[in-house]
């Protein structure tokens, strides 16, 4: 039955080559023909498939990112980023929505992704895989780590509970003290003509971050947009470069 289905025009149009890949040639063609598997090279050094060597942390980071994207999109169906509704929407998500563990999947997934990204960086360091010719990809990876932390941080505000607002208050108040661009940072007073200060509470780095002089509606909306669209968009670009450069820099690192 299955064999017959594999012979149909319909099946063949989707999976070129047909049948379970058995010969060496067929197995190579599977990878070459699939847009998803094509992230991989066709063949690898044997240590590159050993868990003992790779720890699989980079792959897991990407996979958890996908889980977070999907669960995040699901959460967006119920969540409204306003002070009036944000908190109650979060409560409702757990209590009124069937299969109400999406917020848990999203939150614990976010924690897990931070850990897997750290461990991935740790593995790359310990195997010396940042060395030439992979310097640039290491830098891209550092940016990806930063973006992961920022994504996690912006998401922290959205439940609009005590935990959220004070963590973000403390976090965003650091921006007050940005040298030159924060109104309580060193050098801000230099950016003034006479008595007119250009960097004030209404025009500094913190203001750009939370959209107001006080934590409120605008901050919630800005963090929401950054969390759902802005940062994911940027991180996907960097991820694409990261994966591309792994291949272009000679695949997984091997001893010289």
């Amino acid at each position: 039955m299955l064999e017959k289905f594999r012979e149909t025009q319909f099946y063949k149009s989707i999976f070129r080559g047909g049948g379970v890949p058995k010969s060496r040639r067929q197995r190579m063609m599977v990878v070459l023909n699939s847009v998803f598997l094509h992230l991989h090279p066709v063949r690898l050094p044997k240590h590159a498939v050993k868990l003992k060597f790779t720890w699989c942390m980079g792959g897991l980071s990407f996979f958890i990112f996908l889980i977070l994207t999907i669960s995040g999109i699901l959460l967006m169906f119920y969540y409204r980023p306003t002070i009036e509704y944000a908190y109650t929407d979060i409560i409702d998500l757990a209590e009124q929505v069937p299969f109400g563990i999406m917020r848990e999947v999203h939150r614990w997934g976010a924690h897990a992704m931070v850990i897997t990204v750290w461990l991935h960086m740790f593995r790359v360091f310990m195997t010396g895989s940042y060395k030439p010719p992979r310097e640039f990809n290491w830098a891209v990876g550092v940016i990806l780590l930063l973006l992961t932390l920022l994504l996690s941080f912006t998401g922290y505000l959205l439940p609009w509970d005590q935990l959220a607002i004070w963590a973000i208050t403390v976090g965003s108040n650091m921006a007050r003290a940005t040298p030159f661009f924060g109104h309580e940072g060193p050098g801000a007073a230099l950016l003034a003509i006479g008595d007119i200060n250009f960097i004030t509470m209404g025009s500094d780095a913190r203001f750009a971050l939370i959209g107001g002089r006080f934590m409120g509606e605008a901050a919630l909306l800005r963090f929401y947009v950054l969390h759902c669209i802005g940062l994911p968009f940027i991180i996907m670009i960097f991820m694409a470069v990261h994966f591309w450069r792994i291949r272009k820099d000679g695949g997984i690192s091997t001893p010289v």
């Binding site: 958890i64 889980i67 002070i83 908190y87 979060i90 409560i91 757990a94 563990i101 917020r103 848990e104 999947v105 939150r107 614990w108 997934g109 897990a112 996690s152 941080f153 922290y156 439940p159 609009w160 509970d161 005590q162 935990l163 959220a164 607002i165 004070w166 963590a167 208050t169 403390v170 976090g171 006080f214 934590m215 409120g216």
Partner: peptide, 28 residues
């Protein structure tokens, strides 16, 4: 992840109150 999510509820505290800092107030 599924087991973790089913077994442990994500925390939610009191609604945000800009005038009352929790003690201690910790970042993520």
């Amino acid at each position: 992840l599924l087991v973790w999510s089913i077994g442990l509820q994500a925390p939610i505290e009191e609604p945000a109150n800009p005038t009352e800092s929790p003690n201690p107030a910790k970042a993520p």
